[in-house]
Amino acid sequence: TKVFYNGTYVEFNNPEKAKKYAEKVAKKVGGTFTEKNGQFHVE
C-alpha cells in the first residue's frame, strides 16, 4: 500500500499502517488524504 505525498511515496505492507501514516501526514501539513485504488494520497 503506497502513501503518496508531495511527488514521492512511502510503501507499507500493511494497509492499516498506511492509513495511519496518511492521517498523520495530512494532519501535520493541514491537508486531507484520500484513498484511490487502494492507495492513499495526501493533499
Rank of each mutant, 00 (worst) to 15 (best):
T1P: 06
T1A: 08
T1I: 13
T1H: 13
T1G: 04
K2Q: 05
K2A: 06
K2C: 15
K2W: 08
K2R: 13
K2E: 01
V3F: 02
V3G: 00
V3Q: 00
V3H: 00
F4V: 05
F4H: 06
F4L: 04
F4C: 10
F4E: 02
F4S: 03
F4Q: 02
F4I: 06
F4G: 00
F4D: 00
F4M: 04
Y5C: 13
Y5M: 07
Y5I: 09
Y5N: 03
Y5V: 08
Y5S: 03
N6A: 10
N6H: 10
G7I: 02
G7F: 06
G7C: 14
T8R: 13
T8C: 15
T8Y: 13
T8Q: 11
T8V: 10
T8M: 12
T8A: 10
T8N: 10
Y9V: 12
Y9H: 06
Y9P: 04
Y9N: 04
Y9Q: 06
V10A: 07
V10E: 05
V10D: 03
V10Y: 09
V10W: 13
V10P: 00
V10Q: 07
E11N: 09
E11F: 11
E11R: 10
E11K: 11
E11G: 06
E11Y: 12
E11T: 14
F12G: 00
F12N: 00
F12S: 01
F12L: 04
F12T: 01
F12K: 01
F12A: 01
N13P: 13
N13E: 14
N13H: 10
N13R: 12
N13F: 10
N13Y: 09
N13Q: 13
N13G: 10
N13I: 11
N14M: 06
N14F: 05
N14K: 07
N14I: 06
N14L: 07
P15W: 15
P15F: 15
P15M: 12
P15D: 05
P15R: 15
P15T: 09
P15V: 12
E16F: 10
E16D: 12
E16R: 11
E16Q: 11
E16T: 11
K17L: 14
K17A: 15
K17G: 09
K17E: 15
K17W: 11
A18Y: 01
A18R: 02
A18M: 01
A18C: 05
A18G: 04
A18L: 00
A18Q: 01
A18V: 00
A18T: 01
K19P: 00
K19V: 05
K19W: 07
K20M: 11
K20Q: 13
K20W: 11
K20P: 02
K20E: 14
K20D: 11
Y21H: 07
Y21C: 09
Y21Q: 02
Y21A: 03
Y21G: 01
Y21V: 03
A22V: 03
A22R: 02
A22T: 02
A22M: 03
A22D: 00
A22H: 00
A22N: 00
A22K: 02
A22I: 02
E23G: 06
E23H: 08
E23R: 09
E23C: 15
E23Y: 09
K24Q: 13
K24E: 15
K24S: 13
K24M: 15
K24C: 15
K24Y: 15
K24V: 11
K24A: 14
V25L: 15
V25A: 06
V25W: 13
V25F: 12
V25H: 05
V25E: 05
V25T: 07
V25M: 14
V25Q: 07
A26Y: 03
A26P: 01
A26D: 01
A26M: 03
A26F: 03
A26R: 02
K27I: 10
K27F: 09
K27T: 09
K27C: 14
K27N: 10
K27W: 08
K27G: 07
K27Y: 08
K27P: 01
K28H: 12
K28R: 14
K28D: 12
K28C: 15
K28N: 09
K28Y: 12
K28L: 14
K28T: 11
K28I: 13
K28A: 14
V29S: 07
V29I: 14
V29N: 06
V29Y: 11
G30I: 03
G30S: 07
G30P: 01
G30T: 04
G30Q: 07
G30K: 08
G31D: 02
G31L: 06
G31V: 05
G31C: 07
G31K: 04
G31S: 06
G31Q: 04
G31I: 04
T32V: 11
T32W: 14
T32F: 14
T32H: 10
T32I: 12
T32L: 08
T32K: 10
T32N: 07
F33W: 14
F33L: 14
F33A: 08
F33K: 03
F33Q: 03
F33C: 13
F33T: 06
T34M: 10
T34I: 14
T34G: 05
T34W: 12
T34D: 04
T34Q: 09
T34F: 15
E35K: 08
E35H: 07
E35T: 07
E35W: 12
E35Y: 13
K36V: 13
K36W: 09
K36L: 11
K36S: 08
K36F: 09
K36Q: 09
K36Y: 10
K36P: 01
K36R: 14
N37A: 08
N37G: 09
N37E: 09
N37R: 07
G38Q: 05
G38H: 05
G38P: 00
G38L: 04
G38S: 05
G38M: 04
Q39V: 12
Q39Y: 09
Q39N: 15
Q39T: 09
Q39I: 11
Q39M: 10
Q39D: 15
F40W: 13
F40P: 01
F40Q: 01
F40S: 01
H41S: 06
H41D: 04
H41I: 13
H41F: 15
H41E: 06
H41M: 09
V42L: 04
V42H: 03
V42G: 01
E43M: 14
E43W: 15
E43A: 10
E43V: 14
E43I: 15
